[in-house]
């Protein structure tokens, strides 16, 4: 069943920055772009255990803070190694000040050594 979760308020977000949401498993990252759009993807990079919320957001992509792979905030696709797999994208709805996320039903591509348990 699809449910919308309130994950944060717009005030919690800073343009160009990501916010890690740990209340869901695996954690997700919510981004407010400089252009003012809000996106949500899995927070954990698919290469290693790095938080994409700490990454660099530009042109609707987030670059992993550890290595050079970047992920599309629209599709989750990765552009170059070392990461090979995409991250899941979660649907975002804004209601007033509240940011709601509908979690993807796909299986997450977690890096080796990271489990949801």
């Amino acid at each position: 069943m699809q449910v919308s979760l309130r994950v944060c308020s717009l005030q919690d977000l800073e343009p160009g920055e990501g916010l890690r949401i740990e209340s869901v498993t695996p954690p997700i990252a919510v981004f407010l772009t400089e252009e003012g759009t809000v996106h949500a993807v899995d927070d954990t990079c698919t290469h290693q255990d790095a938080s994409l919320a700490a990454g660099w957001v530009e042109d609707c992509r987030v670059e992993c803070p550890l290595h050079e792979s970047t992920f599309s905030l629209l599709t989750g696709e990765v552009d170059q190694p070392p990461a090979k797999k995409k991250v899941r994208v979660h649907e975002v709805q804004i209601d007033g000040d509240d940011v709601y996320v509908e979690l993807s039903q796909e299986a997450p591509n977690l890096p080796p050594g990271v489990t949801t348990a």
């Binding site: 790095a50 938080s51 700490a54 990454g55 660099w56 530009e58 670059e63 803070p65 550890l66």
Partner: peptide, 10 residues
């Protein structure tokens, strides 16, 4: 300090 280092580089 992942966030700080990435920002410095970018």
């Amino acid at each position: 300090r992942l966030r700080e280092i990435k920002r410095w580089r970018k």
